[in-house]
Every structure is written in structure tokens, then in C-alpha cells.
């Protein structure tokens, strides 16, 4: 049993606050992905859980035990570092075996585990090499194998696949997920690749500037962003936002079109819709087409609505030309609303 619970954790580096009051619980055996832009504090949070960084405030619990004053070796974790941290004076074999030797496991067991994890990461043929003789992607896989071989309760991975080519990444991703589920490991996985996040995660924690903005299942994060940032960060292309002015009896006026919206004590709020939730219709929003990019099954139209950037992913049967004005209607159940100041969702959460 290894539930991770982070309670009110903050981290300050001098005047700079890297993490503001983080609360996060990762269930036993859960696969949690930390997703966020560069510099938002993902590595810092991971290092606090690992015990490589002391939090300025708050508590870290792993498996029902408070660990914030324990050194890394007593926390029952293994970590994959963002820059690999392969020991240059040891062979790949000895790198993977390093933690096992520290545990004084019998040689036969060490051989078995090293061979198995190396096979899994497709580096079985490299066991006699030194890190100087490996490519970036191979080093990264050694780092992952070294952590997996420990068979820890908790594994912390900081962008472990970032240096692999697309195909290998796809394959490793699937294998990692399989192995970790089978070994019943609780995983925290850092990435800024949202496709990777969606495909791996039981839950995604979206971070922005040292805060966790939303922690929910991938589809929930995608469909019901808790804040404007989440909508604009996740999805490719991201969500569209337009200003909505208050009209009579609870409806809102967006680019001359009326929509039913939330009750809010504001004159103006933000209307949001995903590009793929639009279709051409007579009662739609007037959009002036700027760029048309055919993507095979779809066409991505970059438009302007009342001077605001507005993207639509449309069926490629639709003929569009630069300069055209099309009417694009949103699917009513997919419309989301955000408070312009707090930037939080105005939708009642389901």
C-alpha cells in the first residue's frame, strides 16, 4: 500500500515561490501524471516527494507514514531524473544493478532483474557499455530500467521518454503502463506532452505557475477544464475563448449571437468552445477565415471572430477559402464559461 498524500506543501527559493500550497493525493497503484508548461514546478514537486528538496511548509505522506524528515533512501521510492543521472564510471549492467546491490540481493536475483528490465526497455544488448557510449535516448532508457529494477512501491518519473523518437516512445509508453500496472506501483509521471499524459494517466494534475489547477481524469480535464488555463493548455489546437456580454434573462451575447449561460453577477464573462465542437450552421458565429490547413480527415481553419483568434476543426468536405466568412455554430452541450477575473469555470461541475 503506497498512497501518496501531499498536504499544503510550498517551496520558496529565496524570494521566488516555486510551489504555492500544493494539496494532492495519489491513490495506491494510481498512475498520476503531472502536466504543465516548462518552469511550473513539476520537477520541484517530484524532488520534494523524493526527499531531495525540503519543502518550505507542509507535509508529505507515503503509505500512511509521514516522510518529510526521512532521507530519500528511507522513503521506498525510485526516481527517474530529467537529465538521466547515469553513473559514468559504471557499465549499464552495474548502473541498473546499483540499487539492488545496495539492498544486498543475491547475485542470481540481481542478474534476473537487470536482464528483465533491460529487455523491457530494449537495452539488453547494451549491458556492457558505459554511459559515454550511449545515445541520449538509450541513456534515458537505462535510467528508467534502473528505477524499475528496484521494484519500488512508488516510482517518480521526470519526463522519462522525452528523448525518444515518436515510434519508440509510443511503444515504451505502452510497455511502461503495462509493467507498472502489473507490479502494482504507485506512479507519478511528469511530462509536458499532453498526448502522453492523456494516454497514460489514471488522473492528470495540471500545474500552472506553482499551483495545481485541476486534478481529474483525462477526459474530465479535457471536457470540463476547471480553469481557463487548463482549456488553453490542453488540446491541440486549444480551446477558443470569446468575450460574452450579459443580455436579458440569463442569456449571454457572443459576437452578436445569444446563448444560454450561467448565472453570474458580471457584465462580461468568457465563452469557450473546443475547435472540434464547431460545425457550419446558419445561426452560428460569424468567422472570417485567415488560414486553411488540410489535415487529412479534417481541415483546421484559423479564423477571426470580432478580432479574436478562433480555430475550428471541420470536416474536410467543407470547401473553405481564405477571406471567406463562415457561420460556425457550437454544440450547445460543449460550451463552457469562465470568470474573467478568477479565470475559474462557471459551469457547475458534474
Amino acid at each position: 500500500m503506497a498512497e501518496i498524500s501531499i498536504r499544503n506543501v510550498a517551496k520558496r527559493f529565496g524570494d521566488f515561490t516555486a510551489l504555492h500550497s500544493i494539496d494532492l493525493t495519489v491513490e495506491d497503484q494510481e498512475f498520476m501524471v503531472l502536466l504543465g508548461a516548462s518552469g511550473c514546478g513539476k520537477t520541484t514537486l517530484l524532488r520534494i516527494i523524493a526527499g531531495l528538496e525540503t519543502p518550505s511548509q507542509g507535509e508529505v505522506w507515503i503509505g500512511g507514514r509521514r516522510v518529510d524528515h526521512l532521507p530519500p533512501r528511507q522513503r521506498g521510492i525510485a526516481m527517474v531524473f530529467q537529465n538521466y543521472a547515469i553513473f559514468p564510471h559504471l557499465t549499464v549492467f552495474e548502473n541498473i544493478a546499483f540499487g539492488l546491490r545496495m539492498q544486498k540481493l543475491p547475485q542470481a536475483e540481481i542478474d534476473r532483474r537487470v536482464t528483465r528490465t533491460a529487455e523491457l526497455m530494449h537495452i539488453g544488448q547494451l549491458l556492457k557499455r558505459y554511459s559515454g557510449q550511449l545515445s541520449g535516448g538509450q541513456r534515458q532508457r537505462v535510467a528508467v530500467a534502473r528505477a524499475l529494477a528496484m521494484e519500488p512501491d512508488v516510482i517518480l518519473m521526470d519526463e522519462p521518454l522525452s528523448n525518444l523518437d515518436a515510434l519508440l516512445r509510443l511503444e515504451m509508453r505502452a510497455e511502461l503502463k503495462g509493467v507498472l500496472a502489473e507490479s502494482k506501483t504507485t506512479t507519478i509521471y511528469v511530462t509536458h506532452d499532453q498526448v502522453e499524459a492523456m494516454s497514460l494517466a489514471d488522473r492528470i494534475a495540471v500545474m500552472n505557475q506553482g499551483r495545481i489547477v485541476q486534478a481529474a481524469e483525462p477526459i474530465e480535464v479535457y471536457r470540463n477544464p476547471a480553469a481557463r488555463f487548463v482549456g488553453s493548455f490542453i488540446g491541440n489546437p486549444p480551446m477558443n475563448f470569446l468575450p460574452a456580454r450579459k443580455a436579458d434573462n440569463g442569456s449571454w451575447q457572443v459576437a452578436g449571437v445569444r446563448f444560454d449561460g450561467p448565472q453570474a453577477e458580471r457584465e462580461e464573462i468568457a465563452f469557450a468552445i473546443r475547435p472540434e465542437d464547431l460545425h457550419p450552421a446558419e445561426d452560428g458565429l460569424p468567422a472570417k477565415v485567415r488560414v486553411v490547413e488540410p489535415l487529412g480527415p479534417h481541415v483546421l481553419a484559423t479564423c477571426e471572430v470580432e478580432g479574436h483568434l478562433f480555430r475550428a476543426v471541420l470536416d474536410s468536405d467543407i470547401r473553405l477559402r481564405r477571406g471567406d466568412t463562415v457561420k460556425l455554430a457550437p454544440m450547445p452541450q460543449r460550451i463552457r464559461w469562465f470568470d474573467p477575473e478568477s479565470e475559474e469555470s462557471l459551469q457547475p461541475h458534474r
Partner: peptide, 14 residues
Amino acid sequence: PVELEEAAWTLGCT
């Protein structure tokens, strides 16, 4: 790199 030492700590070293 400090990470080398840190990696060793997470792998069970004092």
C-alpha cells in the same frame, strides 16, 4: 553533477 549523488541516495545510499 549533483544529480549523480541524488540518484545514489534514491537508490539506497547514505
